[in-house]
Design a protein around this nucleic acid. Structure first.
Length: 294
DNA sequence: AAGATTTGCAACCGCAATTAA
DNA sequence: ATTAATTGCGGTTGCAAATCT
């Protein structure tokens, strides 16, 4: 099973994507959907490998991505999940559907790691012990639960692909002010019109309306979210399609954390128990496995 | 003001898992 | 059941911007 050729033959362009390339890619995906990446470079004429196209779409162009500063609430969630799951950025990102795994990973490496190091003593009480039962401010809910249960708050709206490009374009113009991008602007306007119609057709939303958190959750079936949670978190198994409340979920999650820790301590890592006990102020301050926390 | 250093992040690389034939 | 192709993921790198000296 050799490594597959991910790139089309010929000169493959590398480095930052230009707005023109973004527009071509978004336009193609609008028409064909985000699948069959192998065909994207050949069908669009983009001198990029399929993998690069997919990455560009998933990390920067797809609708629903929020960029920019992380809120303190998002930070809390990332810190807790990193403690619980380790460096499983994709799993962590599934709790923050607005953020990409790459974004979270970068933010962790550049900001949170340092922050935690700096505030290590504070952090140990910051992450509540599994059985403390009390605080709701640090609760983590997987997206896809009913809206009234969502605890990942955000006041922002989700950006469409065209808005993503627009934002990228602004950055591009700041860094390359002499570049002639009028045609890109024109194409972008066209793209935004096209996109608002598509949103309207697909979801029944009114034209020119941005997606909100609620809209996004509507598009994320509970069943899929629960399945994902089953796979990535702590093997808490819910019956498919079962509705559950924050209290039920949180209780189950805490119970699972507790049992995992007990298992880890008593069965698999007895030799580390003393060291771990020193950290019990941090509650779930280590991943479930053997990977180091930082 | 200018050079050196640090920081932040987009993008790439390579392996693993999954899917399709 | 096997194998090749595709997709997903996490670690790492390169470079531009920001900050420091």
């Amino acid at each position: 099973m050799g490594r597959p050729p991910c790139c089309v033959k010929g000169s493959i362009k590398k480095g930052p994507w230009t707005p023109e390339e973004d527009i071509i890619l978004v336009s193609y995906i609008q028409d064909h959907g985000p699948a069959n990446w192998r065909l994207v470079p050949t069908n669009t004429g983009l001198m990029r490998c399929s993998k690069s196209c997919r990455l560009r779409w998933t990390n920067y162009l797809r609708p629903g991505i929020k960029r920019g500063n992380f809120t303190s609430n998002e930070e809390e969630i990332i810190i807790q999940l990193q403690a619980l799951l380790g460096n499983r950025w994709a799993a962590i990102a599934s709790y923050l559907p607005q953020r990409t795994d790459n974004d979270i990973k970068n933010y962790w490496n550049t900001h949170l790691k340092k922050k935690i190091k700096k505030y290590q003593p504070v952090m140990s009480s910051y992450i509540a012990p599994a059985d403390s039962g009390g605080s709701t401010s640090n609760e983590i809910m997987h997206p896809g639960t009913t809206n009234s249960h969502i605890l990942i708050h955000s006041s922002s709206t989700y950006a469409s692909s065209a808005e993503n490009i627009s934002r990228l374009l602004e950055g591009w113009m700041r860094s390359s002010p002499n570049q002639t991008l009028n045609s890109a602007h024109e194409e972008l306007n066209h793209q935004m019109k096209k996109e608002s119609v598509t949103i309207n057709n697909n979801t029944g939303f009114s034209e020119n309306r941005l997606m909100t958190d609620g809209d996004f959750n509507l598009q994320m079936p509970l069943k899929e979210s629960v399945k994902e949670w089953d796979k990535t978190a702590a093997n808490i198994v819910f019956e498919e399609n079962k509705e559950f409340t924050v209290m039920e979920f949180d209780h189950k999650m805490r119970a699972e954390r507790q049992s995992l820790l007990e298992k880890w301590l008593l069965e698999e890592n007895t030799e580390h128990a003393d060291a771990f006990l020193e950290l019990t102020g941090a509650g779930i301050g280590v991943g479930c496995g053997s990977e180091p926390m930082f």
